[in-house]
Amino acid sequence: MKARDNPFRSERLLEIRFRPQESDWAGLLKRLDALGRRAAIVGPKGTGKSTLLEDLAQRFVQRGLRPRIVRVPDPRERFDSGSRRVRLADLVPRDLGPGDVLLVDSAENLNWLAWRSALTRARPAAGMVITAHRPGRLPTLIETRTSPQLLREIVDQLLAGSPALREKVDVDSLFAEHRGNLHEALRELYLRWAEQ
């Protein structure tokens, strides 16, 4: 199957937005405000942290704020296209103001010095939200979790209109095999479809 016809291709996956499991958007935003808009989205890999961060960015735009997203690369991939090592301290903008909200994806990849620098630079901003695998750096806004039911809903969405194909997917086994990492589960489905 051609990549552009694969129901699990990246463009289709980008259509899947964060679905709050134990709360709703209003509750989430209320809690964020109560935390002074400085909070962390915490959870294991593949549970929707980055997706939630992107969706939060849209909500901030609707509130008239300017989200500034920083994606902190994994230490093993910390090189730019010119093969120069990325300086962590340079990732966070220096010009944050009261109309900005700093959003840091994979904040655990910031070393102590870069983290302190980020906190200082975010001080004038209207907010700061990070994603991390473990709690601790900022008060926890939400702990992201997945479930077989969530994976089932996503697969149903991606294979809508193809019940015969849907029957081929054993969601429970897939979920267990990837230990709840939905990114990995969906990637496996992509590869299965690619071979057809």
Binding site: A3, R4, R9, S10, E11, L14, R187, Y190, L191, A194
Partner: peptide
């Protein structure tokens, strides 16, 4: 132009 498929776009 844009890419689509298994990885990032």
């Amino acid at each position: 132009w844009f890419t689509d498929g298994k990885g990032d776009r």
